[in-house]
Write a protein that binds this DNA or RNA. Structure first.
Ligand SMILES: NC(=O)c1ccc[n+]([C@@H]2O[C@H](COP(=O)([O-])OP(=O)(O)OC[C@H]3O[C@@H](n4cnc5c(N)ncnc54)[C@H](O)[C@@H]3O)[C@@H](O)[C@H]2O)c1
Ligand SMILES: NC(=O)c1ccc[n+]([C@@H]2O[C@H](COP(=O)([O-])OP(=O)(O)OC[C@H]3O[C@@H](n4cnc5c(N)ncnc54)[C@H](O)[C@@H]3O)[C@@H](O)[C@H]2O)c1
Lengths: 219, 219
DNA sequence: GTAACGCTGTGACTGTTTTCACGGCTTAAT
DNA sequence: ATTAAGCCGTGAAAACAGTCACAGCGTTAC
């Protein structure tokens, strides 16, 4: 049976993504190689963790040059990225939606927001920061045409479930939900709830009680 | 020695925060009690997980009424919340900053954004959605006066480290960084990097390859 | 009464994630 | 050559997180 690439754990995928962006955006200029130790310091994890994670990419470093940045980035990309560009839809062109468009326009990445949707007539049928905004009624059509399979939900809480239903209907396969209302979607849809309250309450909790504990966490 | 409350693991703190907001905002009306099972379904975790997490709060449910919502919320709050309201500063009043202010104004919560800061003169010395915006130069003063110990960084990447330094200087103890540049802060500051690229790349990765795997993840 | 039910709290277990530690390789220096 | 150094890859161990399964206990039904 196929089983070609053997699925990589969630945690590792997250860190690979982190490593790549550190290598691309924050590696010192004119350095072509680095050691597990260096990447570990940047990512705030242990060197052993880095080496172990990189095992999953298949990339093999050299014992005393370390990892060649370009090659390693390529290797991580071969795992994380769609061979073609990964098309993403954004639902909700409010303050948050616009910040997100900005954010992704600003970074080179395989992820590409190719369409935004809103139900407010005054926000659609125009270009927002380089991304075309459509009325939500065209969701199905555009998702199909643009081969979109991932969506970001940035609408008010009370509209989120309705939007999610439409996304599922339209054939979306993964959803990042930023609204505070948790969504119900079928089993086979990959859903991440990213509620800021939770993150901030964690920060506040540990800030309050750790005077000397080590902190820092990537999420 | 003190050791009064025995520190609760990171993961559990996150779920407690989730449970609370589910109980407060999404519990069916006119229901006073529920079972571990019910909360589990809402939070997308197992019932055993809920029961185990609640052990850390000290709250004891009754075998056949289950948990009294009001009491349980109180109990979680006693763990997560500062006895007084937890004052938070927001740095960067752009699109993202404004979305965040909206977000926290809209939810009852112990977390309270009491001041926003920006270095753009046209954005400060006015009230944004109910929150006073100050020039960044007043950071130290306001942080002290308002007893702020947690901050959200929502400035462009190239300004983030500078802002972080000022926050540490001003006495902040926990930072939620939304800018794409990872920060360096002293050991005793609790830092969470919340980079959207990582979340979205995870979603895209698993969306692409899971036709039948179960999804859903809270972060 | 008392039997049956169904839920909680928790010890024991299982599975996953992280760290440890060391063999092997590659280079540079003597 | 030979040695020394230092990093990589990985098996084994440790730590951590989550699940199972069951005793114990109110409640209800008879
Ligand atoms: N998780 C986080 O970090 C975070 C942070 C801030 C805000 N939020 C949440 O993100 C959401 C958006 O925040 P915002 O500040 O941009 O709000 P906003 O009101 O500025 O924008 C919401 C947009 O959604 C559109 N909309 C409403 N109903 C719709 C529907 N049924 N279909 C399509 N579009 C619809 C509105 O027209 C508006 O343009 C809110 O739910 C907010 O709570 C999350
Ligand atoms: N993690 C996420 O989910 C996420 C999502 C979207 C955007 N972002 C990031 O958040 C940041 C803000 O995004 P935005 O869309 O609001 O950008 P923006 O340009 O609209 O706003 C940035 C604000 O920061 C202010 N600022 C700049 N330098 C400053 C300084 N030294 N001190 C104080 N204030 C300063 C600017 O005046 C501006 O008001 C960016 O770094 C962006 O990449 C993160």
């Amino acid at each position: 049976m196929a089983n070609h690439v053997r699925s990589i754990p969630d945690k590792v995928v997250g860190r690979l993504s982190l490593y790549r962006s550190l290598l691309q955006d924050h590696a010192p200029e004119n350095v072509t190689h680095l050691f597990s130790h260096d990447l570990a310091r940047m990512a705030r994890v242990s060197a052993a963790q880095v080496r172990r994670d990189l095992m999953d990419t298949g990339y093999i470093g050299s014992p005393n040059k370390g990892y060649e940045i370009k090659k390693l980035v390529g290797c991580i990309s071969r795992i994380l990225d769609n061979p073609e560009c990964e098309n993403v839809a954004l639902i909700g062109v409010g303050h948050l939606g616009r910040a997100i468009i900005d954010y992704f326009q600003g970074r080179r990445s395989n992820l590409c927001i190719v369409a935004a949707f809103d139900n407010n007539p005054s926000k659609v049928n125009r270009i927002v920061q380089g991304v075309k905004a459509y009325p939500i009624s065209q969701l199905q059509e555009i998702v199909e045409n643009e081969k979109i399979n991932t969506a970001i939900v940035a609408v008010p809480g009370n509209a989120a479930q309705g939007v999610a239903d439409q996304l599922v209907q339209a054939g979306i396969r993964g959803i990042l939900n930023l609204a505070p209302t948790p969504l119900y979607v079928p089993e086979n849809i990959y859903l991440v709830e990213q509620d800021m309250t939770m993150s901030l309450e964690k920060v506040a909790y540990f800030a309050r009680r750790s005077f000397n504990k080590k902190g820092s966490k990537n999420e």
